[in-house]
Amino acid sequence: MLGIKEIQEIIPHRYPMLLIDRVTELVEGVEATAYKAVSYNEPFFIGHYPEAPVMPGVLIIEALAQTGAVAILSKEENKGKLIFFGGINKAKFRDQVTPGCLLKLVTKMVKQKGPLGIGEAKAYVDDKLVAEAELTFFIK
């Protein structure tokens, strides 16, 4: 299991953009499972929406991308490199993520050729699929 300190040794994200709290499963270069405990104190809830707080879908996608980044950048040959979005395809949001949710994030690499690749990403709350997307990336 990786905590915040270990995650920050792998990916460059920091508060308020670090959107994963722990990694419970990791196959270097292949896949990772991470969790985000969604708190009412998240900075995005100030304006999204004050009377009915909902985690923005783009931030769920970002959390999924960070989960994939941990998998890719933990591989020895990628240590110290950066990973960027190449695209977001087939994104679907199936339910809302609200304060108090424990967001489970699973990202698996399905194709990689050199610095380019594609990952399948799925987010769950209580084993219910709440979001999914195909994420393309490049390593620099």
Rank of each mutant, 00 (worst) to 15 (best):
G117H: 02
A32N: 10
D127R: 11
S74K: 11
A52Y: 13
D95N: 13
L2Q: 08
D21V: 00
E6P: 11
P56L: 04
K111L: 14
P43Q: 04
F84S: 09
V70F: 01
K108Q: 11
T136W: 03
M17F: 15
I118C: 05
P99E: 03
I118V: 15
A133S: 09
L26S: 14
A65M: 01
K36H: 06
E76L: 14
M109R: 11
L26M: 13
Y15Q: 11
V106Q: 11
P115T: 14
K36A: 02
Q66D: 03
S74T: 10
L129K: 05
E120N: 13
Y49V: 09
A131L: 09
L82A: 12
T67A: 00
R14W: 01
A32L: 13
H48V: 05
C101G: 03
N89C: 07
G87N: 06
M109Q: 10
A123L: 03
K108L: 00
I83W: 00
Q66W: 01
E76R: 11
A123Y: 01
Y15D: 12
F85W: 08
F93R: 09
L129H: 03
F93P: 04
K113Y: 03
F45W: 04
I60M: 02
V106T: 14
E134L: 07
T67G: 01
Q112G: 06
A63F: 03
K122V: 11
V70Q: 04
V38F: 00
D127Q: 11
G80R: 15
S39H: 14
G29Q: 08
G87A: 07
I139W: 07
E9P: 09
I20Y: 00
I88N: 04
F44R: 12
T67K: 00
F45Y: 04
F44T: 10
I4Q: 10
S74G: 10
H48R: 10
L18N: 07
T98P: 07
G114I: 09
A91V: 10
E132T: 06
V38D: 01
H48E: 06
